[in-house]
Amino acid sequence: MSKHDDQFLDELKELKMNKSISPEKKDEMRLNIAKFAKKKKAQRKRKQQFIWASTAAAVVLFGVIVMSIMNQQTETVDDPNPTPADEQPVQGEDPENDPVEDPENNSEEQPEFNVEVEGPFDETIMLEGMEEPTQVMEFLITPHQISYQMDQFLGNYDINENKITHTTDTGFATVIVEVINDTQLEEFAEGLEGDQTPVDPNKNPFEGIQSHQSGEQVTGYYAYQVNDDVLYVQYEYGIEGGDGVGPRLELFIESISKME
């Protein structure tokens, strides 16, 4: 850092203030917080007791049901002339215990894929060793809370289902960002082609794999595990005149983060 940078940092440090919370206010806050912690502890204890009690009740109820089913079966075996009513399955008599579940009620609804876009913001990229000013748009995929920046060079975007497709004006380069819900990276990677290598851990906080193929068309992908989902990024651009795409792709990869 230059001397000028150091002076600037010193100016920033001077913004650090010495003010603190007054002792009276602190006492009041401490008391409130301690009270809340105590209340919360009592609530948790009650909740645990309730869980124990309901578990015990469920075990007893289960025992009673099993016993009554066994008794009924014994009676059926003993009866030499069963009536049509006796032939009804036991489960049919008690719909609450029917193990066949309604698949519609059982399926977990995935939150709707939504993207918030902000910008443009100024950024700097390195092009052939020179700093080049550029502009980026900030994308936030909700509810996954995955954010990233995309250079305005790939300024056209289209959002379709779980996929955002970024393209240049001429369609010369394409980057597709996709979230695959509830998927493990290892399992997902098995279905992908090409030589896979682990991603550079210094680029962004996520573990993942990448693959890159060079030809007349440069193609490749990155796949990251983001909590229970996989973030899948595919890219493609022409080798001729594609010098500017690499650094912009780099900026995009480094910008991927998870907002808390």
């Binding site: 919370i21 401490r30 919360k40 502890k41």
Partner: peptide
């Protein structure tokens, strides 16, 4: 969470949180 622990954290970090 114990009230002792949270009050200890409060005494130690309340001013840092306040300034932030």
């Amino acid at each position: 969470m114990d009230e002792e622990l949270i009050t200890e954290w409060f005494d130690r970090y309340a001013d840092d949180i306040y300034r932030f």
